[in-house]
Amino acid sequence: MTRQRPFFVQFLVPAVLVAVIFAAAMFNVLKYSFLEFVPGSLNVGGFTLENFTRINRPIYYWVLLDTFILSFATAFFALLLSYPISFALVRAERNWVRSVLVVLAITPLFTGEIVRTYSWMLVLGSDGVVNTALKSLGIIDRSVPIMYTRVGVVIALVQFAMPVMIILLATAISQINRDCEKAAANLGATPNTVFWWVTIPLTLPGILSGFVVVFAWTMSAFSTPQLIGGGKVLMISNVVYLQGFSSFNLPFAAVLSLVALVAALGSLALMKLLTARLEQNMATS
């Protein structure tokens, strides 16, 4: 058996290559975070811990908190909007309904992030589709600011995250034993009770993993908050960009990157702990 192992080693080569390059990059980020920033120069000085003390300022806490809140809101609203679509996608009786839903849900994945973000700028702008529609309906007199606000950023991020959320939820919904729902109905549960007390709990692992994936993904969002936030909504990636490529303070950008990474990994670990407990309980022999 061990004789056969070397055969599989060749399949590891691409993964190992990527891992090595990635590790080298990460190591460099780590290294930069301990090096002195020389103002007006791209070169860095000697060893220092000053970069880490510099982060202890309210503005960076606010950015981190903001990033958390925006990611959480994005995951939450993406979940809320995706669940009904996933449910219809799995349960629709007619094949063509399912096909149409799949196409509508998945095609956004194939348009680039920049294209999608610019489209949202057209929709959300002060002369955009939303404001024009609201004005012509007489609901508002003057344009409501959506561009350059948190609401605008979350709207675009939610739409960006929905295809992935829909796929994850649809997988979870398609895997539940429908006899459980039938059993609940048979025992006297109304369709509403069946949904909230059986369907939702049975799809909870999918709900949690969808939430975690979107949350982590949004934590590193860059171009959407950059373009729709227009500098008024800052997420951690935007601050890293500002420090690294506007102030050319690469060491401090490295520290911020590390903080973002640790925060993301920490929240992922926390959620993973939660889901692992749940999945253990839900597993049927």
Binding site: C180, N186, M282
Partner: peptide
């Protein structure tokens, strides 16, 4: 009459017990 108002008790081949 819909399922939930029929007052029948069914045992499924897959048991369909609520795992949660």
């Amino acid at each position: 009459v819909p399922v939930h108002l029929r007052d029948t008790g069914m045992v499924f081949q897959s048991y369909a017990l609520f795992p949660h």
